[in-house]
Amino acid sequence: MRVVFMGTPAFAVPSLKHLAAEHEVALVLTRPDAVRSRGRKLEPSPVKVAALELGLPVLEAKRITPEVLDALASAHADVFCVAAYGCILPDEVLTMAPLGCVNVHASLLPRWRGAAPIQRCILAGDERTGVSIMRIGHGVDTGAFCAQASCSVPGKTADELTAELAELGGSLLVSVLPTLADGSAVWTEQDERLVTHAAKIEKSEMRLDPAMPATDNARRVLASSDAAPARCAVADKPVRILSTEVLDDVAVEQGTYSVSGRRVLLGCAEGVLEVVSLKPDGKRAMDASAWAAGLRGKQGAWGLLS
Rank of each mutant, 00 (worst) to 15 (best):
P210T: 09
G139K: 09
C146W: 00
A166G: 10
A198Y: 09
I241E: 00
I136G: 11
V195M: 01
G130Q: 08
V153E: 08
A211P: 08
V131W: 06
K237V: 10
G261C: 01
E192Y: 09
R240S: 14
T142D: 13
A199N: 07
A144T: 06
L208M: 09
V246P: 04
E167N: 08
K200P: 11
T162I: 08
E253V: 06
D159A: 15
A163H: 12
M134P: 03
A163G: 13
R135G: 06
V239L: 09
L222W: 12
S243R: 04
A235P: 03
L165A: 05
M134Q: 15
V186T: 14
G267T: 05
R128I: 11
E205T: 09
A230D: 09
A166N: 00
R135Y: 12
M206C: 11
M206F: 12
D209P: 05
L168K: 04
A218G: 10
G170W: 05
P238I: 00
L266N: 00
G255S: 12
G170S: 03
L265E: 06
R220L: 12
V186P: 08
T129H: 11
G169A: 02
N217M: 13
P178V: 04
M134E: 05
C151D: 05
V221W: 02
E192K: 15
M134I: 14
S243V: 00
D141P: 10
S243H: 05
I201R: 05
E167G: 10
C232N: 01
S258A: 15
E202C: 12
S150T: 11
G169H: 03
L180W: 01
G130Y: 07
E189N: 15
Q254E: 14
A166H: 06
V239T: 02
V239G: 00
R193V: 02
V250G: 13
P238F: 01
S152R: 11
C151A: 04
G271F: 00
F145R: 14
E192M: 11
A147P: 02
E205W: 13
L177Q: 01
V174S: 03
G267V: 09
K156P: 08
L177A: 04
A214E: 14
T179N: 04
L266D: 01
V250K: 06
D191R: 03
S171P: 07
F145I: 09
N217T: 04
S184F: 03
S171K: 14
E192S: 10
V195D: 00
R263T: 03
T179A: 10
K156Y: 03
S258H: 13
E202R: 15
E245F: 04
S184I: 06
C151G: 02
I201V: 15
V259E: 09
L173T: 01
L194H: 01
A166W: 07
V176H: 10
Q148A: 07
P154F: 02
S152Q: 10
D159S: 15
P213H: 11
V176A: 03
Q254Y: 00
E160I: 10
L247N: 14
V239M: 01
V259T: 10
P154E: 05
R262D: 14
V246E: 03
L161R: 13
I136P: 08
L168P: 00
R128G: 05
M134D: 06
V259P: 09
C151N: 07
I136R: 12
V264P: 08
A227M: 14
A149W: 00
